[in-house]
Design a protein around this nucleic acid. Sequence first.
DNA 1: TAGATTGTTAATCGATTAACAATC
DNA 2: TAGATTGTTAATCGATTAACAATC
Lengths: 218, 218
Amino acid sequence: MIAVRRNKISGQASEPTLRRLPGYLFYLKKMREEGMLNISAPTIGKELKCDPTQVVKDLSVTGIKGKPKVGYNVYELCQVIENYLGFNKPNEAFLIGAGNLGSALMAYQESQTLGLKIIAAFDVDKDKVGTQIGGIHVLEYGKIFSLADRLKVKIAILTTPNNVAQWVAEELVDCGIKAIWNFTLTNLDLPGEIIIENTSMSAFAAVLLRRLNDSIIK
Amino acid sequence: MIAVRRNKISGQASEPTLRRLPGYLFYLKKMREEGMLNISAPTIGKELKCDPTQVVKDLSVTGIKGKPKVGYNVYELCQVIENYLGFNKPNEAFLIGAGNLGSALMAYQESQTLGLKIIAAFDVDKDKVGTQIGGIHVLEYGKIFSLADRLKVKIAILTTPNNVAQWVAEELVDCGIKAIWNFTLTNLDLPGEIIIENTSMSAFAAVLLRRLNDSIIK
DNA sequence: TAGATTGTTAATCGATTAACAATC
DNA sequence: TAGATTGTTAATCGATTAACAATC
């Protein structure tokens, strides 16, 4: 029997690897600014506190080639990671629900690299509509239908109250949205092809608190 | 040779389990409000899209006992999870850096269960000092030393600019802070006993973008 | 050349999933 | 009783870590 061998496609990174890459990128950009030309995996690993072998493996998903004894070219490395993650492309996104967390994310992307660019926010609150937060206009929710179609936006950040999240998400899918970054606690039930990235702040708090309580007991 | 068998301590939950527990809790509280008395692992699994066996295993860390064919008591389940995570205790925290993300988290905890309670915020910006965000006072950064000591606060949320994060973190450790929820991109280098929970927004964006791009190619 | 580092393959480790006996 | 569900133990799966040959 002949085994069929799949070609190794560059898009094979595991989720943990994907989560680590922005961390590498931030550090490498800092090193690039400081004028460093080459960097080795052990050096990166020491700084970010992870195994050098893992660094090598993580970086290999971008297809970069390093030189034994020398390491990787810092400038090239920054470029391939940015390119691999798609951080150098516009990645335009809508934000729905300009409440507390919503307006924060809008303001946040000014100072930090979020990876994507919020081009408009939507809300039903008449007081918020017409205002600007972090340079982003808050529009009337109803306008999302025509705008999504016109601008071909594929990504939505969902920061509405929990009780309307499912309903809004369904409308987003109707608008042609393909990926939803969900900050609500609601478990969205949507067609399988829609990409959902759930980010719940309390999940982090849970890990932190548990580790803290464990360390106090010991 | 006699094998030494460790007693199964309740604090043995893995990190993935810990991250899932707040999700269960939110759903169960909703069910409790709707008057549901008992719930089975398969029912929870169907809703949260995870394996029923995993639900059983996750819930078992709290020490709760279910009844075959009936499931778990919803009220009791909410209580034991809240208790296990420590979400029912005060968990008082300081927030340092009342900038964009910082003020967001302050406002956020009013509407969502964060798991911990921000009792004061600190900033060096004279314009922010004296104001109130989400009901939390912003105090002068210098005051943190005496207050941390007096109030015995053990948790700090770090939302300063990246370039001062390491420096501030070291001062927090001097203040007696034991756990730092780090929202900056800086890799904090602190004594080993300090608990650090790194939360970088761009890590989520990376996973979302990659999955989106992969799905478009296919 | 000698030695550090890359890059790959193998071993380990831990989490998820499957199997199944116990039980209500 | 019959059957669904718990709860535990075993099998699987995937990620991390270790080993090592290639190479600059």
